[in-house]
Design a protein around this nucleic acid. Structure first.
Lengths: 217, 217
DNA sequence: TATTTATGATAGTATTACTATCATGTACAA
DNA sequence: TTGTACATGATAGTAATACTATCATAAATA
């Protein structure tokens, strides 16, 4: 994990893990705009100053959580696809993993991956849609996201080595899985899945979109 | 324009138009997070209370500006495509219009469309990525965006009446034009256009993506 | 045992996000 | 022409947010 994202490593102490655990719950419940360090401190039973010893501000905490998620997710990909040879099957698996509501991973008791996935859908893009994005990118704040993008782009190139836009297609897959999910549940008129509201529909849409583009002619 | 978005119609007074004009400039310059009614009031030479007579809060102002933009943009589409018969050419024109940096429209001296387009790219999704999205959608805050989506979905169906995901493809086009643009300029490793940095590249990517999906087999 | 370190407790500041009140000038209606 | 409604300006004030600083204490460590 990028050390510039925190003042004190939250994974090395009980209070730190409490901050991570409850920030996920509180951002999920209140939304990022409604989330404050004061409320977080109250939930945990510590003080605002206690939180500030770990994170400079709530923006850095959000970037930390997204970095954590994408690191975890890249591991999920390698775990679930390492024995799949066919890149087409592998890419389909990636799309499915992106779209599927994950189950809480018991290994990391202090992070609820299901809730974090929901946060990434609704708040994830706010981590980089800022005026400081260029500076923060230089500090490698978004490396896990870029690494994941590179992994997916490579699978895309395995499917079709002549495809011209592997990285842009990779980000399109990631962002569109999330946006279609958000729209389906919150602004259903913007999707074709408003009535059914099943992730399988989003997966079908993206498979159609992606593999029509990668088809060799 | 949806009356629930403002307390007093900003287009009906000089102060109102000043608020619109300078809010576009200030959000462009400071980003939405760095934008406050106090700074806005100082720029205009009025007081905070003056702004609050027009808009309840800065979130509503952002929603207003996005609604204004999408309304204006839908008119641009009909203006630039009304004499085009071929739906494929029309859809290409829509993608090009979405991707191209617009020129400032002289008809509306109080809104700089070029700056507003840049705001939509970087801040537009924050208008709906909130906890209140469901309530605000009921109040029709996002109608112009949904109308535009419907217009594009209809062109898509004209291209291929059997295509199963017209609305999701429409939102994918809109969001991806903007995200690829933002990535190209701010997180270039996430795209295939980082070196060239030309909108024409984004247009090519989207044309490839869209028309491979709409091809009848 | 001495010392570093993390936390808790408390206090305080600047800024943000509002709300309220009153005076003034202008427009328009009687 | 007078009266009145209304938009704005000016000022003040509150609650919450986003921090920073200081000190005491307890646990870890050297």
């Amino acid at each position: 994990m990028n050390e510039a994202l925190f003042l004190r490593n939250p994974e090395n102490s009980e209070l730190g893990k409490n901050i991570l655990q409850h920030s996920v719950q509180l951002i999920y419940k209140a939304g990022f705009e409604g989330f404050t360090f004061k409320k977080l401190a109250e939930e945990i039973g510590t003080t605002e100053a206690g939180i500030y010893r770990y994170f400079e501000n709530k923006h850095k905490l959000l970037v930390y959580l997204t970095a954590w998620y994408w690191g975890w997710f890249e591991f999920q990909i390698s775990f679930h696809t390492n024995n799949i040879k066919d890149p087409i099957v592998r890419l389909k698996k990636v799309i499915k993993l992106l779209a599927t509501a994950v189950e809480d991973d018991e290994d990391t008791h202090y992070i609820n991956e299901y809730l974090l996935h929901q946060i990434i859908i609704a708040e994830g893009s706010k981590a980089y849609l800022t005026k400081q994005v260029w500076e923060e990118n230089k500090l490698q704040f978004f490396k896990p996201y870029k690494d994941l993008c590179a992994v997916i782009a490579n699978i895309i190139l395995e499917c079709n080595p002549k495809y011209k836009y592997p990285k842009s297609l990779a980000t399109t897959i990631i962002e569109m899985v999330h946006f279609q999910n958000f729209f389906m549940n919150n602004l259903p008129a913007l999707t074709d899945f408003g009535k059914i509201k099943e992730n399988i529909e989003i997966i079908s849409f993206l498979n159609d979109l992606v593999f029509n583009s990668l088809k060799k002619i």
